[in-house]
């Protein structure tokens, strides 16, 4: 089924300079009871975003007017832990289209790509520069250019290239979906079954 296409995104970003943000932080298990994909954004980073009595925690970055945008920039090893795709849904539902980090957990990376959320892996040095920019100018704008595979700080021109496999890049650019691809290969799958399963 067609999804939103991704080519070039220019946006300010939300900094989250915390390492090892696991999927239990992104969306705690007690919010995984829904049977649809929608609405998880309300509970994104629930236990950091709200205090125990349910009021917004003024110290958490999503509750500060200072920062906004469709890009989340987070510390290394983002998305570790549980395979819950609800983490990618929650980030997307909240409005993020890109997550930048110096390191992503494997399952999260796949889940993000399968939902039109682009994981952009940068060097640790570049990541720290982004956090410095956000501290001095919260409105710092980044450009994520998927065809060129570059991430650029628009004001200064600082940039890096990022990796994405050619297949997934095509999918993101065109809004293609893995399941359509697999379904179009049913003959090969059936042939495999016949040759490999006694």
């Amino acid at each position: 089924m067609p999804r939103e296409k991704f080519t070039i995104l220019r946006s300010p970003f939300v900094p989250l300079p915390v390492d090892n943000v696991d999927t239990d932080q992104i969306i705690p298990a007690r919010f995984l009871k829904a049977t649809t994909r929608e609405g998880f954004g309300d509970n994104l980073f629930r236990d950091w975003r709200y205090t125990s009595d349910g009021t917004p925690n003024p110290d958490f970055v999503l509750n500060k007017d200072t920062y906004s945008g469709k890009i989340l920039v987070a510390g290394k090893n983002f998305g570790s832990g549980s395979s819950r795709e609800h983490a990618a849904w929650a980030l997307y539902d909240y409005g993020f289209r890109v997550v930048v980090s110096s390191f992503f957990a494997d399952i999260f990376r796949n889940n993000a790509l399968n939902n039109g959320l682009l994981p952009v892996q940068v060097t640790e040095g570049f990541l720290q520069r982004l956090f410095e920019h956000s501290a001095t100018d919260p409105d710092t704008v980044l450009e994520i250019n998927l065809p060129e595979q570059t991430i650029t700080v628009v004001a200064t021109g600082e940039h890096e290239e990022f990796e994405i496999n050619a297949y997934k890049k095509e999918c993101m650019l065109n809004g293609y979906d893995d399941i359509d691809y697999l379904l179009s290969n049913k003959d090969k799958i059936t042939a495999y079954e016949q040759s490999h399963h006694k």
């Binding site: 395979s83 819950r84 609800h86 990618a88 889940n111 399968n114 893995d178 399941i179 697999l182 799958i189």
Partner: peptide, 14 residues
């Protein structure tokens, strides 16, 4: 382990 989109892939095509 896999995500739900991948669960859908396996349900649809194994």
């Amino acid at each position: 382990g896999i995500g739900t989109s991948e669960v859908e892939m396996v349900l649809a095509t194994q």
